[in-house]
């Protein structure tokens, strides 16, 4: 098992290196550079001497390979560089944005898992009944309606009807103001969580329907176990592997999904940082944030694989 884990770690590192190369090259293949992104058409107003001085500052004239080497070397030593736009350290920008995004992603997963698993399990136990139909409705909304529409609708409805838009008053961390923080996180987490719930609900329901008819389930019921024990200890545990796979995939996607939701709900997370940095051609910030998103995805996938081995003894071999 340790060898398998080592191989997985190695492939994770190779993947991350590939991501770093691709992001680095794609950014530099786009038209324009940090100077034109920063100054816009005002770049044309600069004298030759000014352009030379600023090209040097922004590193515009340096060979791509040397830029990549210098960036990768810095990243490996924990130095993410300095934002070209705000001239502050990228590590400090990421350090303030990452917790917001993690909190949002975890909150969304909690909501998504609660709604998805509960509706999936109970819907499968009584197919075609009220709970199942309600769950199917949630799934249709979660899968069919984009998060930016759900988010914008929620913000507009709450503000115009209840004069309530807690995240517009500046983000409050959980440690500074837990009450306000939870209000600020709940609605964006709900918006993202609906999408997660939809996918999990369908997966859970299908997996449960599959195991309900199996012999071991009939045996569990036949030997007189309590209904709760049959459902959660036997049926759900048997259906857990596909649910776990889907959860891992959804958590990975969630990190990317925060980009839109953070914009709508005014959350100062990594997604918003990334959008601003892309607009400003702030290469050090874009590279670092993208690498963090990619690392999140890869690490979650690896943890999902590890979880399989804990849940399903057959995979240990």
């Amino acid at each position: 098992m340790l060898i398998a884990l080592g191989r997985r770690l190695l492939s994770m590192l190779v993947t991350l290196f590939g991501v770093a190369v691709i992001i680095f090259l794609v950014l530099r293949m786009l038209p324009g550079n940090a100077l034109t992104a920063s100054l816009g058409v005002s770049t044309g107003l600069l004298s030759h001497a000014q352009l030379v001085a600023l090209d040097h500052y922004y590193g515009v004239g340096q060979p791509v390979l040397s830029q990549f080497g210098s960036w990768l070397g810095s990243v490996l030593t924990g130095n993410l560089g300095v934002s070209l736009s705000s001239r502050t350290s990228v590590a400090s920008l990421v350090g303030s944005a990452l917790p917001v995004t993690l909190e949002l992603a975890i909150g969304s997963m909690v909501i998504g898992v609660l709604i998805g698993v509960l509706f999936g399990v109970f819907g499968a136990l009584r197919p075609g009944r009220v709970v199942d139909n309600l769950g199917q409705g949630v799934a249709v909304v979660g899968l069919g309606v984009p998060s930016f529409i759900i988010g914008t609708g929620l913000v507009t409805f709450l503000a115009s009807t209840f004069h309530y838009f807690p995240s517009s008053q500046g983000f409050a961390s959980l440690f500074r103001d837990p009450w306000l923080n939870l209000q600020q996180i709940f609605f964006p987490a709900l918006t993202l969580g609906l999408g997660v719930a939809a996918a999990l609900l369908r997966t859970t329901r299908a997996a449960m329907l599959e195991v309900i008819g199996l012999n071991y389930a009939r045996t569990a019921r036949g030997k007189g176990l309590a209904r709760r024990q049959v459902v959660w200890k036997h049926l759900f545990l048997g259906a857990l592997v596909p649910v776990l796979t889907m959860s891992g995939i959804q958590l990975g996607y969630l990190l990317g999904g925060t980009v839109v939701v953070e914009q709508i709900f005014v959350l100062p997370g990594l997604g918003r940082l990334l959008v601003t940095a892309i607009n400003n051609r702030d290469f050090p910030v874009v590279q670092s944030v993208t690498l963090i998103f990619a690392s999140g995805f890869v690490v979650v996938n690896m943890l999902t694989d590890v979880a399989y081995t804990l849940i399903d003894p057959r995979t240990r071999s």
Binding site: I106, V110, L114, S173, L174, A189, G269
Partner: peptide, 13 residues
């Protein structure tokens, strides 16, 4: 639901 969230504080830098 919100109370169950694992939360990490964010400090503007």
């Amino acid at each position: 639901v919100g109370a169950g969230l694992v939360s990490l504080g964010a400090v503007p830098v």
